[in-house]
Nucleic acid binder design. Structure first.
Lengths: 165, 165
DNA sequence: TATTGTTATACTCTATAACTATA
DNA sequence: TATAGTTATAGAGTATAACAATA
């Protein structure tokens, strides 16, 4: 009679439901975000990550593909394809790095910046939809907490990671 | 002279850095989680999602594969493969649903519950590592906020989604 | 010798379609 | 007719390896 009850006890007491698993919650929210974002980013090559590349190419100093790849968490070969598509669409351009002729600096074109301004506004609305179940103060809090963790996972801004660019 | 300055102005003022993009932060944290979790879950078929299936199979009432698939955000065909592997490892078992002979109810074996108890503890430590940059109160807050959003994305517990099981 | 970027290739993951058995 | 589950197949996405140019 001690064979079944400890197992039941164990199942009830020490094993929490999947809802308390951080991985489940992160995955569910992330999937929901991607699903909603892709509607808005349908016409931007690369979807959410194309958007992130375009944002990085517009903001701050131009930086190398490799540095950007590390910051966005993609392989350098994936970054090549991603930029190929964005460049074909006339949204970004590769320029030789004057200080290192192996590297290429990425920068947004005027068309790219215009496109970004539009999609950024639309995406911000999508983000608000995703965060709708939270109170306004909670939304800002969640953004801050995630950003704090993300910058720890992917330290530094694009150009602080490796070399200044 | 109005050709270049408005663009610069636009770039600086209206386009925020990628760090303020919710998608970037979510992606970075999620990737960091998966990377860390996979070390702990190396010997569990299916990795993080195998863990979630095993957790669901242990917690609460047994539920159908389809219901569980929806709750975990995977395709029903993927769920088949996932359960195949877990069943081969002797961690879960499929039982016919007495009320619907098409469906199969998933439940964990004793070995599965034992395995879950170990990995759950290890995974909880991984979660704490991921959340290390945050203060204790912030960690609980982030968990709550993400869970709140996740349950909105994937409404209900496994057995509340479609039919009671 | 190490690194940036590219290309080709292979691999993994996921979704689609077709099917069986039930409802 | 619609649904649960399975299987086979195709597709997308990703990583690996080899290479040229440069440091």
């Amino acid at each position: 009679m001690r064979l079944s009850t400890p197992a039941r006890y164990d199942a009830v007491v020490t094993t929490p439901a999947v809802e308390s698993d951080l991985g489940w919650a992160l995955g569910a929210v992330f999937r929901g975000y991607v699903r909603s974002a892709e509607k808005v980013l349908a016409h931007l090559p690369g979807g959410p990550r194309g958007f992130q590349v375009l944002t990085s190419a517009t903001t701050g100093e131009p930086c190398s593909q490799q540095t950007l790849a590390r910051h966005l968490g993609v392989d350098k070969t994936v970054m090549t394809y991603l930029i190929d598509d964005l460049e074909r669409a006339g949204l970004v351009e590769r320029r030789p790095d004057p200080t290192d002729r192996r590297a290429r600096l990425l920068s947004a074109t005027a068309a790219g910046r215009a496109h970004l301004a539009e999609t950024a506004a639309a995406l911000r609305r999508v983000e608000d939809e995703i965060l709708a179940p939270l109170a306004p103060a909670e939304r800002d809090l969640l953004r801050d907490l995630l950003r704090k963790l993300a910058t720890r996972q992917e330290p530094g801004s694009p150009c602080e990671v490796a070399s200044p660019c």
